[in-house]
Design a protein around this nucleic acid. Sequence first.
DNA 1: CACTGCATATTTACATTGAACATATCCGTA
DNA 2: TACGGATATGTTCAATGTAAATATGCAGTG
Lengths: 201, 201
Amino acid sequence: MKTKTQDAKPYHHGNLRDALLAAARRLLETEGHSALSLRKCAAAVGVSATAPQNHFANKTALLTALAAQGYAEMEAYMRRNLSDAANRKTRREAALLGYVAFAQDHPALYELMFARERVSSIDPDLLRSVGKCFVILADIAKDFGHFAGGPAKVDAKQQMFLWSLVHGYAQLLTANRFKKDDMLEASILDIIPELRTDSGH
Amino acid sequence: MKTKTQDAKPYHHGNLRDALLAAARRLLETEGHSALSLRKCAAAVGVSATAPQNHFANKTALLTALAAQGYAEMEAYMRRNLSDAANRKTRREAALLGYVAFAQDHPALYELMFARERVSSIDPDLLRSVGKCFVILADIAKDFGHFAGGPAKVDAKQQMFLWSLVHGYAQLLTANRFKKDDMLEASILDIIPELRTDSGH
DNA sequence: CACTGCATATTTACATTGAACATATCCGTA
DNA sequence: TACGGATATGTTCAATGTAAATATGCAGTG
């Protein structure tokens, strides 16, 4: 018989889903994805090994939710330190630096966000988070690159160019493939060769 | 008692290491990395479940060898269809198209080649294979981008620019992040905005 | 030929993990 | 109060990575 006065551990956690996501995130970033298991998440939160199944159908579902959370946070990185009144150049540079800073601050999570097999790429929540990130990039992309073709094709090429460049840079940087001292000094802004128009400032 | 006339399965495989790598490669490309286990590799080759341990200290060692093999093959893709007499522009375009073609033909292997946790990034064989790929890119990079700084810094920025661009493009393409029709039409050559000098042709 | 050493493969064993299943508990509501 | 849905538990199983001890074959050496 359990007394009501001293609060025993409740049968129901209350917010297990978020707690599991937080634990998973912590495990991922401190011990790497190979150390991330549903059981460890459950243990970290203090519930039974199979409790996560009530909130995530399988491990992929949890990783997908984690990735979606990652995109949302990356968006925040791209928008941080910015007032709406900031001019175009400032916004541009802040967004690109934010993108890279996020990858550097959370390399394991960033890798998960682009892992083809570990996340369900058709998940609506994930797609929504991805989309919100890339409207930012798509807007910035208007300023970069001289390309041939009609307006739609030019837009597409600009977006592909910028996204490829910043994503490739972020991943090669976090994968430690840039070794030379001269490379380590160069930021993402330093390796963008030109502007279409210097409409900012 | 075993007769010598009908050849019984030999106790020693003869070339188990290569056979395991081939089996691993097949599993990776047909069923994905989550279906790749040491035991399945062993079973595919027809040896006991723990035989691989004699050739690969652990799973990471096998994946690292597989990644090294991938870089060697990507180099072949970049060099294919080329005579030494080809002019600079032709070599440039063939190498870039080859890089992307490799990623498209072997997306799971390509992803492995840049996976931070699954491969040992300090493995000498891997580093050698990576290096041979990127002398090609480093040479091509000389033609791209106007950057500030001394010669060494300019070289570094050009290399970072080109490698980031082509790697980001390849990964976003294989990860199916380019959705719009206009994007699917654009090749890597279409999203490179300019040449430093048109020294080729 | 007999013997020895080494590389290679096998067998056995164990802890971890993802997942399925039936069951228990809590809470809101009719 | 009784019921039902949501949430958590305990049990169970197959697959996996890895360790340790053992067996096999081969290549020399006496």
